[in-house]
Every structure is written in C-alpha cells, then in structure tokens.
Amino acid sequence: MAAESDRLGGPAELADDERAAVEALLYRLADDELVLAERYTEWQVRAPTLESDLALANIAQDELGHARLWYDLLRDFGYDEADLIFERDPADFRHASLAELPFEDGDWADAVVRSYLYDVAEQLRLEALADASYPRIADRVGKIQSEEAYHREHAQNWLERLADDEASLKRLQAAVDRLFPHALALWEPSDHEETIEDLGLRTESLAAMREQWFDTVIPFLRSLGLEPPEGVRENPEAVRPATIGRDGDHTDDWDALHEEMTRTYRELGREEAHKIMPDPDEADA
C-alpha cells in the first residue's frame, strides 16, 4: 500500500504537474479501450458463428464500459464527452497503434491474437493501478478487473483451438507477425510518463510491465507452436513499428476510424453527447 502521505487529493486539489500526469494516464487508458472496442464492433454480424459474434460484442461492450469509467475521471477536470471523444482532434488521441489497426478482411485469427495480446497487457496494467496514489483511479480498478478474466479465457480458448489445425495455425502466425510489434506500443510512454511514475499513479514502470508481459505471452504462444518476432525480447526497439499511436502519431487508418466513429454526431449537428446513462459515481451511490 502507498503510504497515506503519498496519496494525492481529489481532482480540485492537484498541483498543475500532478493534474497533467493524471490526465495523460487517463487518456492512454480510456483511448485504448474506446478505440479497440470500436474496432471489435466491426465483427458484429460478421464473426464465424453467432456464438463468437455475441462473445466478441460482449467484450466490446465491456471495454466501452471501461473506457467510460476512465473518461468519466477526465470529466472531473471539466471536459465533457464532446471534448473527450466527438470533437477531439484525432491527433490528440493516445491509444496504442494495436487498437486502431483495421482487421485483415475476415481474419478471425487477427481478432483472437489481438485480443489475447491486449487483454494480458490490460491485466498487468490494472494490477499496477490497483494501488495508484490517485484514489479516483484506484477505486475503479476492481470493477474493471472482474470483467477481464472472461476476455483472457475467451482469447486463450480460441488460440488453443485454432492452433490445433494446420491452416489456422498459419493464420495465427501471420497475425502474430503483424500484431506483435504494434502490441509493443502498449508499453510506450505518452505524455508526462516520468511524473506518472514519480507520483505513484502507477506502481510499475512501463518497462517492468513489458517484461512481465513477455513472461506471459511468449511462453504461451510458443506452447501453441507460434513464434514471436525474432529477438523481440532482447531488442524490442528494433521490432517496434515506426507509428505507435502513443505520441499522437497515428496510422491513416485511425483518421478513417475516427471519422466514422463521429459521423452520426456531426450529421445530426450535435454540440454535446446524448446522455443515456447515469454518471458512474451516481450509479455506485
């Protein structure tokens, strides 16, 4: 447990640098969840079976719910939903490139591999937030963790079964080759990373979490007959793609996705997001 004296106050009590770091951390978390969920929904009515369709739609819904919990903490600082999503400059988003890549057309192996790489990372990230020095973040971790076990089980079960078939194994390997480098972006810093660590907003460094992630995903993929990119552990920088998303530099696919995600809002001439659910704090009360 972080000592009481190291605990930060509420949103209004933060110093400027503290607030900047809290915001930077929340944008990373929220944007990853929102953008990946948005991609997942492309499988709606297109997944291999009705059952797999519903399972992935359910996972997407969970991730949207998690995005909402993190964006809601940004609302503490005076931003509204339009500022955070619908009217935000796409270049201001801080999600990892893994989340924004389009799926290879009809390639379920892509969805399964992506979800596996992401959900193991999310587990580590949440564990490192459980004792965050900013109580508003720490308080929301448990709620998210309780939905994550299903995501990992789903991805692992699919991987094990697809790996059992020669043709599917090849597709999995192609997905690993393509997605593993972009998954490294999950562990890249965005803004104010040093302050995030110094303040104990997260209790593990990005580098340490990346090592833990390697410890889990590499042996598991190998046990299925899948090879991660050569030398990735020793020299991740050599494997990491040029465009990682975390710094606001995104692929062209992101602009197209953002355009589509916000189209209805613009077409309806909205100036604020339609509110259909109570504030998470009120829902908990």
Partner: peptide, 20 residues
C-alpha cells in the same frame, strides 16, 4: 442452446448468450 465444439467453449458462450 449454443453451438460449440466442446464443453469448455459451450460454457464460455453460454455465459454470454444465456447468463448475461
């Protein structure tokens, strides 16, 4: 019901389709 290749996947799918 659910379509699934084995018991483990059936339990996984049933949670979403019938337990959610």
């Amino acid at each position: 019901n659910v379509h699934a290749p084995d018991r483990e996947m059936a339990k996984l799918f049933a949670q979403i389709q019938h337990g959610r």
